[in-house]
């Protein structure tokens, strides 16, 4: 089962025929994910990677019964692609695209309010349920099936955490890359809630970064609702204030969004906080034995 995606998910690829879309869709298919088709406006009626291409998401949903969409379209058109997917009734939209203007995401966030569509990302590696479905750009082989869930703002740091968990004798249920932008569809707390309620997940690794208040919000919820161990790490303990560290959202704006402030509140809320990224896996293994 796990969360968000599984072997029964029917995936549509928006930006299917582009370089990124083609490469990652092939990788997803190779992993065993059910990719049922793609959308590239103007190329409807053709076929790509042995799957049908549609002009609109609405057409694709009607013909294929797709319930999940992954977006690889360029930043200028990505907000439009997310709203098109939501309008067509897609339940889960995963947006990989990096570099979407903030004001576009303000509109998208508002557009999605009250709709039944969940957005993951943008600027994220996607979602993987180990051994079942890969809806993202992560290297699948690292995520050996198991019972640890991961929530993370970062791509390669997610792979690092998964790899350490596997080397510590554990495995992964679902890893959710929520994205590193200032405005994202699914904040940390919602991703944590999904995994906390998942009977196939025994422990949660929560990876955050400097900037914003999402980790603190998640920590407060965890304090009241924790039923399984949570290991936390915040990247950017050595980042200078006011400088953007790669991700658009990774910038220290005040006293509350430093790594130290977030780590403090997370520890106070009963999360096993690690200072070194090298300790994520062993700390989770130890926490499960407690």
């Amino acid at each position: 089962m796990s969360v968000l995606v599984n072997k029964n998910s029917r995936i549509l690829v928006q930006g299917f025929t582009g370089t990124e879309g083609t490469f990652h869709a092939s990788q997803m298919i190779e992993y065993g994910t059910q990719v049922v088709g793609g959308v590239t406006p103007g190329k409807g009626g053709t076929s790509h990677l042995d799957r049908p291409v549609f002009n609109t998401v609405a057409d694709a949903v009607k013909q294929t019964g797709a319930d999940v969409s992954i977006i690889f379209v360029p930043p200028a058109f990505a907000a439009d692609a997310i709203m098109e997917a939501a309008d067509a009734g897609i339940g889960l939209v995963v947006c990989i695209t990096e570099g979407i203007p903030v004001q576009d995401m303000v509109k998208v966030k508002n557009y999605l309010q009250g709709s039944s569509t969940r957005l993951i990302g943008p600027n994220c590696p996607g979602v993987i349920t180990a051994g079942e479905a890969k809806v993202g750009i992560m290297p699948g082989f690292i995520f050996k099936p198991g019972r640890i869930g991961i929530v993370s703002k970062s791509g390669t740091l997610t792979y690092e955490a998964a790899d350490q968990a596997v080397k510590a004798g554990l495995g992964i249920s679902t890893a959710i890359g929520i994205g590193g932008d200032p405005i994202i569809g699914t904040p940390t707390v919602e991703a944590v809630q999904l995994l906390m309620n998942d009977p196939e997940t025994d422990g949660i690794i929560m990876i955050g970064e400097i900037g914003g208040s999402m980790e603190a919000d998640a920590a407060r919820w965890i304090k009241e609702n924790k039923t399984k161990p949570v290991v936390g790490f915040i990247a950017g303990q050595t980042a200078p204030p006011g400088r953007r560290m790669g991700h658009a959202g990774a910038i220290i704006g005040g006293a509350d969004d430093t790594a130290a402030a977030k780590m403090k509140i997370m520890a106070e809320c009963g999360i096993d906080v690690v200072a070194s990224p090298a300790d994520i896996g062993v700390t989770m293994a130890a926490a499960l034995k407690k």
Binding site: L157, G180, A235
Partner: peptide
């Protein structure tokens, strides 16, 4: 490679 891993 990667902003999060770079900060870490």
């Amino acid at each position: 490679n990667g902003a999060g891993l770079a900060m870490a």
